[in-house]
Amino acid sequence: MYKNTWVPGAWFTLNTILALCPPIYWALDSSVEVAGLPMTLFYFLAVCLSISASIVYAYFFDRHNGEFES
């Protein structure tokens, strides 16, 4: 299941770029709606969910590789 060891690092890097680069947020048009939400709000929710999912993935990745064994 966890064969790609580069996935967590790449995912965290992508999350960092998406969360900390205001020009991406500024480029979004507020008049466009996605699922009934303004695009800017949808962007922040999507980034939040991606960050949360990557932390959970990293936890299970480390647990599977025996990082928590004493």
Rank of each mutant, 00 (worst) to 15 (best):
Met1Arg: 12
Lys3Pro: 15
Lys3Ser: 08
Lys3Tyr: 14
Lys3Asn: 12
Asn4Asp: 14
Asn4Ile: 10
Thr5Cys: 07
Val7Gln: 13
Val7Gly: 08
Pro8Gly: 00
Gly9Phe: 05
Gly9Gln: 12
Trp11Gly: 01
Trp11Leu: 10
Trp11Ile: 03
Leu14Thr: 15
Leu14Ala: 15
Asn15Val: 11
Asn15Cys: 11
Ile17Val: 07
Leu18Val: 13
Leu18Asp: 03
Ala19Tyr: 09
Leu20Glu: 15
Cys21Glu: 12
Pro22Gly: 08
Pro22Leu: 04
Pro23Gln: 13
Ile24Gln: 10
Tyr25Arg: 15
Tyr25Asn: 04
Trp26Val: 08
Trp26Ala: 12
Trp26Arg: 08
Trp26Glu: 14
Ala27Lys: 06
Leu28Glu: 04
Asp29Cys: 01
Asp29Met: 00
Asp29Ala: 04
Ser31Thr: 04
Val32Met: 12
Val32Lys: 03
Glu33Arg: 11
Val34Asp: 06
Val34Cys: 07
Ala35Phe: 11
Ala35Tyr: 02
Leu37Tyr: 07
Pro38Met: 13
Pro38Thr: 13
Met39Ser: 13
Met39Tyr: 15
Thr40Asn: 14
Thr40Ile: 09
Thr40His: 13
Leu41Val: 14
Phe42Tyr: 15
Phe42Trp: 13
Phe42Ala: 15
Phe44Met: 10
Ala46Ser: 13
Leu49Gln: 06
Ser50Ala: 09
Ile51Glu: 02
Ile51Trp: 07
Ser52Asp: 00
Ser52Lys: 01
Ser52Glu: 01
Ala53Thr: 02
Ile55Met: 12
Ile55Lys: 05
Val56His: 09
Val56Ser: 15
Val56Arg: 04
Tyr57Phe: 15
Phe61Pro: 01
Phe61Ile: 02
Arg63Ala: 07
His64Tyr: 12
Asn65Ala: 14
Gly66Gln: 01
Gly66Cys: 03
Gly66Ala: 00
Glu67Asn: 05
Glu69Leu: 14
